[in-house]
Design a protein around this nucleic acid. Structure first.
Lengths: 194, 194
DNA sequence: CTATTCCTTTAACAAATGATAAATAATGAG
DNA sequence: CTCATTATTTATCATTTGTTAAAGGAATAG
């Protein structure tokens, strides 16, 4: 549980009381590789913190498996659209590497906002950060070639090397075949062609 | 000023006192077509509500003018990255149609959070909505062709017809020439080819 | 109204990515 | 370990989008 509060600490807003209140909404869950953390069709009521392991959010579009998001350990994962709108989600969360999750009960967590303004502030600040990340990802998709996006992803998430290629392709918005092609042509910057 | 509070009303969180407190952070500004509302290089300290008119956020990338966002009347516009990080922004806000803005002083507005939790909640809820919009735009860019994105934009924002094509192309992540080509080939769904 | 400037379209060709299919390679169950 | 399954690469061809250049239209200042 400590890792979660280390994560929250960057926002420097929680009092001890608030931390305790949050703790009461959390539970720990051990998960296997390939395990489904949340399945498509359900309405989300949980925010996960990934203590260890790798997860992805994915959905099916026109029969194709699309990876929307990769989560590495030390980060939060949630099906936010469903969480905020309280509608069933077409998306699912799946482990790509075994690990351990902290599951935050969102209903309970959101109720704390009325009693502890510091917790609502924490959430607001996390939202700001996520929103900026999202805006940056738009820019990345919109104005970079598939090759550039792949190189950026490699830099940002070295651990991505553990993830099957087929999941990465859809995250980058291209086909598996295109990604394979890009990798085949890919030469690191310091490679000399003689 | 009423239009702004009508907009806020959808979130149903503000008391009268809170509305008055917000009013004190606002000023009204009349703006001409083509007028620069905020210029590149400055650090943003203002959230705008567009009472009337059309605005865009844009920046230069590799010497090219890139439209990041179109704002239609009845919506908020802000250079959020700069606002949240308090760093100078490479982005600018420009009017495409003359109109009237409500300028919210962000420093003052954010300070109200400590006194009025309802105002912080309002902001949190607006952030949630913007974040979801942003996630949806990622999906739109990533898994739709330029043609599909153009059609979607037409449906979402009819007023976009007033906006010069060259600004729309970069918003869609394509070149002006490609957009022109798409429009040339474009036939509405109910058109019969005989 | 006219001239200039800016915007949009068109054309021709290049480059990137998609679709499909088949060949290898890697992985996991038994 | 071996077989069956799954993942990745390679190949070929089609399609989309980019690049550059030029021509045609629209808007605006004077």
């Amino acid at each position: 549980m400590q890792a979660l509060f280390d994560y929250f600490e960057q926002f420097k807003v929680l009092s001890e009381t608030e931390k305790q209140a949050i703790t009461a909404t959390c539970s720990i869950k051990r998960v296997e590789k390939q395990e489904m953390v949340e399945t498509s069709g359900s309405t989300s009521n949980t925010i996960y913190f990934l203590e260890k392991g790798i997860a992805r959010i994915y959905y099916y579009k026109d029969g194709k498996d699309i990876t929307e998001y990769f989560a590495l350990s030390g980060n939060l994962v949630a099906r936010v659209q469903s969480l905020f709108t309280q509608k069933p989600s077409p998306k699912a969360i799946q482990m790509l590497e075994a690990g351990e999750l902290i599951a935050i009960n969102a209903t309970q967590f959101f109720q704390l906002f009325d009693t502890y303004p510091g917790i609502e502030r924490l959430f607001r600040l996390m939202l700001e950060a996520s929103y900026l990340e999202s805006v940056e990802r738009i820019e990345s998709i919109q104005f970079h070639s598939a090759k550039e996006r792949y190189e950026t992803l490699l830099k940002e998430m070295e651990i991505i090397q553990k993830v099957p290629l087929k999941y990465i392709a859809s995250y980058l918005g291209i086909t598996q075949v295109s990604l394979s092609r890009i990798r085949a042509n890919y030469l690191p910057n310091d490679t000399q062609i003689s």
